[in-house]
């Protein structure tokens, strides 16, 4: 029996796992969002991103988001997995997904999962450029 919710902070994300983790006999739809490292930010070339977290709190906040989504959209399964450490261009850094009886629920839930994660979960991203580093969103 696989858990209904998968909440994890890992060093490296394997995106091939997620289908079997969300697959479910009661679900007619699975929706997944993968966030990856983009090469250019406002015209500047990013060498890599570095993520750090306050893990204990991040897991709690991710669990709240997942529980809220399960309740709101009657999801059968939900996953929130975020990577930390140094990530290169094109590497996956976050995977969120949901499975539900019909597709509308998992599409909406998936957007809620990633949008809320970005607002509340204590994870910080540092952009490393050729000659400087910037903590994302730190300054207005």
């Amino acid at each position: 029996m696989v858990d209904k919710k998968v909440i994890e902070i890992v060093d490296r994300i394997d995106t091939s796992q997620v289908f079997s983790e969300l697959s479910d006999a009661q679900s007619g739809g699975i929706c997944v969002f993968v966030g990856t490292v983009r090469e250019f930010t406002q015209g500047e070339e990013v060498v890599s991103l570095e993520f750090e977290t306050y893990k204990k709190m991040a897991i709690k906040e991710m669990d709240k988001i997942a529980s809220d989504a399960v309740e709101k959209w009657s999801l059968n399964k939900v996953i929130i997995r975020h990577a930390i450490g140094l990530k290169k261009v094109e590497e996956p850094v976050v995977v969120v997904g949901a499975s539900s009886a019909h597709r509308d629920a998992c599409f909406e839930a998936c957007r809620y999962l990633i949008d809320t994660l970005k607002e509340t979960v204590p994870i910080w991203k540092k952009e490393m450029f050729e000659n400087k580093t910037v903590w994302v969103s730190a300054h207005p």
Partner: peptide, 8 residues
């Protein structure tokens, strides 16, 4: 202390 978060 939780400065502005920027996960995802």
């Amino acid at each position: 202390i939780i400065p502005p978060v920027s996960g995802g």
